[in-house]
Design a protein around this nucleic acid. Structure first.
Lengths: 189, 189, 189, 189
DNA sequence: CATGAATGAGGGTTCATTCAT
DNA sequence: CATGAATGAACCCTCATTCAT
């Protein structure tokens, strides 16, 4: 019913499958049985559509993150756990968007990219704050480099979109557990 | 002098800057002062050039990895350390290729992608073997899931190409140390 | 007005003059004052345009042939006469299409060629049936090889597109008369 | 051993299979394991090669025809028979050249085409002379139009290259007999 | 709101030909 | 005699975008 929403959803599907550059507006509208005119009624450009997808993804992520970091009842370890869980779950729930999000940012025009980068940075710094707070209150080791640890967490989790198949043999809870275990306790005996 | 080599190098530079799809053959040859005909004298297609870049990158990686895993004098912890160091160093040394390698694989045709995927899998399984050996001989914790840990290592390291700037404030040795520390000992106090 | 029709007509003209391979889409659209984009709005490919021309020609031929063979009032000699007349007249009426039709079939892709070949075969077998019926009812000699006679008729008539100029000194009725005379009565004294 | 001859033979093969325009010099030299330079050592251009093929074909035909028409011992009927036999046999013997000859003349440049056309005309007029002599001496019907009959003969025979397969179920002698029978005696009962 | 026709710039690729060696 | 590198023009086709209706 909502044509704009349908366009976005089908775009995500096609962008994820074939890539942004390889997907033409024609592909999108044909798959929906509408015409190019319709597309350009709802969107100014192909880039704007991509930006739309990016903004939705990162905003949702920031929103869910907010609920974690504003929760006064959680200690920092739990917050880290919830963060890892959030990232992995999001890949499960919106895998297609995730892949488009991580892969196609370069096709945004500089201004759009700037906005998204800022939001991604915010998301990252929020994690860094968790690490720093944990160091301060003794939950985490004292001499960690919070920024690098943060990148480690993000790399670990985000990379999953490259290989993790929620329908596959590994359950997402299992993955979260393995990651958080490695992160907190390390693998050395 | 060697035109083919020049084409490859310039391509890597442009693919990394603008992306594979956004870089035209025209862009490449113009930057080199040759003609499109010359390009097609050395390459059958744009895709073949990309495949060339991919193959060179992964083969170099596998080659360097071989030297690590075949070194009888190293224990598994050291091998893991060397692996992390290899991945990060490679980003420092051939950052452009790395970014092209991780970002543009989807533009390979299925057959080419298959070959590269197999090699990447081999690289991954070699790491997994290190983990498994370490578990067996007591260097690593007994109840780890070697496959997931391997993905964690790879994610952590490979993700770096997204943000790590070897010219920036963080030295590569520092990054390697922080990553291996997190991996081996964890961050929990 | 009808751009598609104009494209077809101009293509026939150019294909006939210069040959299919030697005529570029650019040639066609430039001659019409439209752009390449317009061409590809109406046709999927250059080959599809050629197929279009082929189909129109053979369908028209089959259609006209149908009126001959379904006419109960005609004996087989008359039907053969009408067939020869049809083929020659068609060269007069649509000489350009005829030349394109007979000359450029090899540029169709296999599937398209298959369809056209089948229709051409049908046209040929319809003639063969006339011959066979004529043999059976005594209009034609008893020991003819109907298939070879059919090829003789077709060769005689179709070859005309190579030299016959309806504007030239030989009238088409004259040609038809000469051909049918040769066919029916032979040239020996 | 004779490179030039090899080039010609392979060209005929490829031109016949794929068409003149669709066959590149690269195709030819690759199939022979030589280089483009070699080709251009022996031929000035692709067109010259095609002209070479055409000239060889028509000269051979004219040569063989000469032996027929200069044979004082033959009457005109026999000469016509031998002519039909010559054309059909030639398709059997040099089918590939025949198809290239009849199909690709349009790719000659005007001057070359002019030369070939003249030779083809000579061949045709030689046949016409047979007909006319036969009319004069009473072997053929008195009121034939020699020129149109000639075109009929040529069409009948030449068209065969479109369908006649010497390896197929119809023997060439059978075809010649059927054609000459139709020509001399007609098919009417 | 939505369409269908049209644009025009550019993309990857092919290829006959040239020429220094 | 023969090569291999290089050219440059052309070719088929794609596609984001525009716009009158």
């Amino acid at each position: 019913m909502d044509v704009k929403k349908k366009i976005i959803e089908k775009s995500i599907e096609l962008f994820e499958m074939k890539g942004f550059s390889e997907t033409s507006i024609q592909d999108v509208v044909e798959a929906l049985g509408v015409t190019k005119g319709t597309f350009y009624y709802y969107f100014d450009s192909k880039e704007q559509l991509l930006m739309n997808i990016h903004r939705m993804y990162i905003d949702e992520l920031l929103n869910l993150q907010k609920q974690i970091i504003e929760n006064r009842g959680m200690n920092q370890k739990t917050k880290l756990f919830e963060t890892v869980k959030l990232l992995i779950t999001q890949i499960k729930v919106t895998g297609r968007s995730a892949r488009v999000f991580f892969r196609e940012m370069m096709h945004l025009k500089p201004e759009s990219a700037g906005i998204i980068k800022q939001k991604r940075k915010k998301f990252r710094l929020n994690i860094q704050t968790i690490i720093e707070s944990g160091i301060k209150n003794g939950e985490f080791k004292p001499n960690l480099q919070a920024d690098l640890v943060t990148f480690a967490v993000l790399g670990m989790c985000n990379w999953s979109y490259n290989w993790f198949d929620p329908e596959g043999p590994v359950a997402d809870e299992e993955l979260v557990k393995a990651y958080i275990d490695t992160l907190l306790n390390g693998i050395a005996n």
